[in-house]
């Protein structure tokens, strides 16, 4: 099927590329179907989470692996009921302002994808992580 995107024009996606939010993004309860878009030049540390139903709605995701020295999300037990069994992939949402050096990521509420069921959930962790964590160190 064709999918209109905000930043890449119209792209072709398969049914298996569709991710469904079993627990929606907070404040975006009406938007359930998204697809992940990678860009070859940018690599896989950042991805676009594009709404399939609204071309203008798109989030930038960051792979938090480089933060793993202090960012170790503990999932609630009920997540298996929501996403099904599997190995979940964790992403965090970026807020990119005009001055990109001030980009922050939401470590309090990451999203988890189950690649087997293609279900997604945004989970507010019990852990005390910041909602706006600066991604870029001041002096770079």
């Amino acid at each position: 099927m064709k999918c209109k995107t905000r930043d890449f024009g119209e792209i072709e996606i398969k049914d298996s590329d569709i991710l469904t939010f079993a627990q929606p993004l907070f404040g975006f309860e009406d938007y359930r179907r998204f697809t992940l878009i990678y860009n070859h030049d940018i690599g896989e540390s950042l991805a676009w989470l594009q709404s399939i139903d609204d071309p203008e709605l798109c989030f930038i995701l960051f792979d938090p692996t480089p933060l793993s020295s202090f960012f170790r999300p503990e999932l609630p037990q009920w997540i298996e009921d929501t996403l099904g069994k599997g190995d979940y992939i964790c992403w965090v949402l970026c807020a990119i302002p005009d001055d990109i050096r001030k980009t922050t990521v939401n470590l309090k509420s990451p999203i988890f994808i189950n690649p087997l069921t293609r279900k997604v959930a945004q989970i507010m962790l019990e852990q005390n992580y910041p909602i706006r964590f600066p991604l870029i160190k001041e002096d770079t």
Binding site: R6, G27, F59, I96, N106, S109
Partner: peptide
């Protein structure tokens, strides 16, 4: 988190691709 998500969604830079 709603506010943070709205902020994340409205990263409506003229060219977000360049920014990313």
């Amino acid at each position: 988190n709603v506010l943070a998500n709205r902020q994340a969604a409205s990263a409506a830079l003229p060219n977000l691709f360049d920014a990313v």
